[in-house]
Deep mutational scan, measured.
Amino acid sequence: DETGKFLVLALYDYQEKSPREVTAKKGDILTLLNSTNKDWWKVEVNGRQGFVPAAYVKFL
């Protein structure tokens, strides 16, 4: 159920650099879980949760 969740689009490829991050490919649609940090947003992609740089994604 996606009610109340926001989707964001990956603008660039991002390769995770730590276990707390997730890899995303340009064009991926990610479920935004938390955007309270202006630099790192928590997302879910391909069943995995983790952080990506906020500058790499935008709201749909």
Rank of each mutant, 00 (worst) to 15 (best):
W40K: 00
T31F: 11
D1T: 13
K25C: 13
A10P: 01
D13L: 08
D13Q: 03
T3W: 12
P19H: 09
W40A: 00
V22C: 08
L33P: 01
E16H: 08
N34R: 05
L30N: 00
V22Q: 04
L7E: 05
D13Y: 11
Q15S: 11
G50C: 07
K38Q: 10
Y12N: 06
Q49M: 08
A54E: 04
K26A: 13
Y14G: 02
V52S: 01
V45Q: 04
R20S: 12
K58E: 14
K26L: 08
G50M: 05
A24D: 02
D28V: 05
Y14C: 12
N34G: 06
G4N: 12
E16G: 15
V22D: 03
R48Y: 07
F51T: 02
K42V: 14
T36E: 13
G4D: 11
N34F: 08
R48I: 09
L32G: 01
S35D: 11
S18R: 07
K42A: 08
V57H: 00
K25G: 04
A10E: 01
K17I: 07
L7Y: 14
A24R: 03
A55R: 13
K26M: 09
G4M: 13
G4A: 11
T36C: 15
K25S: 09
E2D: 12
N46P: 01
K5T: 11
T31R: 12
A24M: 15
L9I: 15
L32Q: 00
D1Y: 14
D28G: 04
P53N: 04
A10R: 02
L33R: 00
T3Q: 12
L9Y: 10
V45M: 06
K5E: 09
N37E: 10
V45L: 14
L11K: 04
E44Y: 07
G4I: 13
G4Y: 12
Y12M: 12
L32F: 04
K5A: 11
V57P: 01
F59C: 15
W41L: 07
T23P: 04
S35C: 15
D39S: 09
Q15R: 08
S35I: 11
Y56E: 02
N34K: 05
A55M: 10
D39G: 08
Q49R: 10
E44M: 08
L9P: 00
Q15P: 07
